[in-house]
Amino acid sequence: MATEAHGEGGGLAFHPMDQFIIKPLFGGDTVSWYTPTNATLWMAITVLVIAGILIVGTSRRAVVPSRSQSVAEMAYGFIHKMVEDVAGKDGLRYFPYIMTIFMFIVTANFLGLIPMAFTSTSHIGVTAVLAIAVFVSVTVIGFVKNGAGFLNLFWIKAAPLPLRPILAIIEVISYFVRPVSHSIRLAGNMMAGHAVIKVFAAFAALLAISPFAVLAITAMYALELLVAFIQAYVFTILTCVYLKDALHPSH
């Protein structure tokens, strides 16, 4: 189907998915697992930006912070408070891990909004790895901390006894659906916004509606700025919620 759409010479050319193609950086055609690609490039830029904000920005260690230092401190305080509020005091042990996830997602989301950039977090492969890592580590933490008591998460004591098996089935299913929804939410949001912007950009080729298209792209871009932050926030806070379930499985 998509092939036919690309084959047409005239008229509107919608290629909303082409922006997600992975290309090798230094020529060549094969994409092996070690090939440096545009995904590699943008992940490296993500790391550099994180280091720039969190290390270069704070290098002066000023008591009265400069602008970049206060951004770093704000991010730190934001995630620290979130972990403490949602997962509790003992969740603070995992704070660097959660901070890593948050900084990676929020930076990649915002870098993806630069025109011509590649959005690493719009790929389900990437977000699935993040979500599965959270899922596996949370499950392991839950069993290590609580032993078999972790299974109380699925056996709800507050419910009447006949209902408990049914609830347990529902809880188990919802527990295993977590990484799916966790990853697809982020990737889907990023992909949807970028694809919609591309569709509007294709409409801009028509002279009659191009002003409308440009306005729509601007509005979508503003919405995407919001979404880029909110999705990173949501991914992080859900990680904290899952962590809380692992640390304190009794409801």
Binding site: M1, A2, M17, M82, D85, V86, S181, I184, R185, G188, N189, M191, A192, A195, I230, Y233, V234, I237, L238, V241
Partner: peptide, 26 residues
């Protein structure tokens, strides 16, 4: 924070249907 979690859950289902649409199209 609770509101954002609720938004995320509600939004996820819309994203699922969007994903289904994309899968069907592409």
């Amino acid at each position: 924070a609770t509101m954002f979690i609720g938004i995320a859950f509600a939004e996820a289902l819309g994203i699922f249907s969007f994903l289904v649409a994309l899968l069907l199209m592409f």
